[in-house]
Amino acid sequence: MPQPLTSLPKGSKAKIVGIAAGRGLTYRLMQMGLTPGAEVEIVENSSGPLLILVRGVTVALGRGMAGKILAEPT
């Protein structure tokens, strides 16, 4: 079952399924490597922005935006 990134625990890995954001934001995220099919690892997920590792780069995402990214846990 695909879930928003915000509901994945720290240390877990997942595969991005889709991004449910506006066109501009989606584009921006995809160009940073968050494309469907990309593997992500949750580095930090507490009350602040989410930290994820994607394509060898650590990226910080505000929780609002991270909640719009759907991923399938692997």
Binding site: L29, L51, V59, A60, G62, G64, M65
Partner: peptide, 12 residues
């Protein structure tokens, strides 16, 4: 109404 989003690369 929404605060600006944060997308940030975090280098080592």
């Amino acid at each position: 109404a929404e605060p600006p989003e944060l997308i940030l690369e975090v280098p080592a």
